[in-house]
Every structure is written in C-alpha cells, then in structure tokens.
Simulated scan of single mutants.
Amino acid sequence: MLGLKLFLLLVFGSLVFSWQTELEVQIHNSFNKQGRIVTFSIQEDEPLSINNELIEKVIYPSDFNYGYNKVIFILKTHKEIKHEVKLDIRERIPVTKINLDSGQSIEESCLSDKWIKISSLTNFVIRDEKELIGKVSKYYKSDGNYFYNNDIRSKEVIHSGDRCSIHLIYNSIQITMPGISLKNGAIGSKIKVINETTNKALDVYVIDSRNVEVKM
C-alpha cells in the first residue's frame, strides 16, 4: 500500500484519495473507549494532499468501527473533505517478557507490552497488567504472548494439611476453632477444612494463609 502511494506521488505529485481508500497507519494519536486507550494515526512520511491541495489537519472519529471509519481532512484552503478510510487501530497489551512455566507466579519483571491490532483481540484478552501481577500462570507461556482470562488463577495461600483458625460469626458473637485444611485455596476461594474440635468437615472461605471463615 505504501509503495502504491509513493508511485502516485511520483506520477501525480499528490495522493488522490478515493472512496474507501485503505491508509497505512502508525502510532501517534489516542482516545479512550470503554476504559481502554486506543491509539492510531495516518502515516505522514510524505506530504498528504487531496487533488493537489495540501492537508493541514486530520480529524479522527470520536468512536470507531473495526472496518471503515469516517475521517475529516482539513485542507490548507480550509475546505473540509470527508472520506471513509480503514484505520489500523492498535491497543497496548501486556505480554510475557520471558518464558513462563505452568504454575509460575507472574511478577512485574515478567511482563512487557506490545501494540496489537484490535481486530485480532477478543473480549477475553487481559488488557491491564494489574490484573496479572500476583497471579499464577496456569499454562506454559513463551515470551511475547498475551493472556486470556482463563490463562491465570489466583495465588494459593493455604495448602492441604495446613493448620488454620476457623472463624464463625453469628449475631455479633465470634467463635474461633482450630482446623486443618483439606485442599489448597486462594484468598476468597471456597475450600473444605476439618474442625479439630468436632472432627467434622466444613465449607469455609479463605481469609489469608492462617484464617478461614464460615459464612452463615
């Protein structure tokens, strides 16, 4: 596409845009959509013009489609021309900086970022590195790969066989009993423990590495 534009420049001395022209783009301008920063721009390696009139300004859409988008070109003569162009819209996505093993904790030093075409992303791709840091990778991930929601899990803080305190709160009365965890669990997850006082199994929710709670 860029080669075609250069050819047109040499032959006609300007870039003549036709309806639904595809434009090469690179990262420059940005706007926010649904809490995400979307960045795009028209490539300006060569002076852009329409019908030999130089373009002074380009107004991008406040919203966008994954296909063609209406862009306004303000010419030096202050005339406005609207064209539908295909924008190469990209988003900065956190990716692995190193090879991650299955079960490995994800730290900030493990992550980098990459500009990826939005058209190739799904709603299940994790876009914020804060959602990754402190989590555990379920699967092996080679460097340069992004994460789906199902690729990570919370870090387990309590493990099968660990001793813990079981807290039961009822009508402002708190009872604490000794227990033993029967399975691994992350904070907020539901696990089973043995109440050492009654020798019965209870369903509890993990508070931290030493405490669990019975929710009434």
Rank of each mutant, 00 (worst) to 15 (best):
33 K>L: 06
33 K>I: 02
34 Q>F: 15
34 Q>L: 14
34 Q>E: 15
37 I>E: 07
37 I>N: 02
37 I>T: 13
38 V>S: 01
38 V>E: 04
38 V>T: 03
39 T>V: 09
39 T>P: 00
39 T>D: 03
39 T>A: 10
40 F>P: 04
41 S>C: 12
43 Q>M: 11
43 Q>F: 09
44 E>P: 05
46 E>Y: 13
47 P>W: 07
47 P>I: 08
47 P>E: 09
48 L>P: 04
50 I>R: 04
50 I>D: 07
50 I>K: 06
51 N>E: 15
54 L>I: 15
55 I>Y: 02
55 I>E: 04
56 E>A: 11
56 E>T: 08
58 V>R: 02
59 I>E: 10
60 Y>C: 01
62 S>K: 15
64 F>M: 04
67 G>A: 06
68 Y>C: 02
69 N>I: 05
69 N>E: 09
69 N>Y: 06
71 V>D: 05
72 I>T: 15
73 F>L: 09
73 F>M: 07
74 I>A: 01
74 I>H: 03
75 L>Q: 05
77 T>S: 13
78 H>L: 11
80 E>S: 10
80 E>H: 14
80 E>W: 14
81 I>L: 13
82 K>F: 15
82 K>V: 10
82 K>C: 09
84 E>A: 11
84 E>P: 03
84 E>I: 08
84 E>D: 15
84 E>N: 14
85 V>R: 01
85 V>A: 05
85 V>K: 01
86 K>G: 03
86 K>M: 13
87 L>E: 05
87 L>D: 02
89 I>L: 10
89 I>D: 02
90 R>I: 00
90 R>S: 02
92 R>K: 13
92 R>N: 12
93 I>E: 05
93 I>T: 07
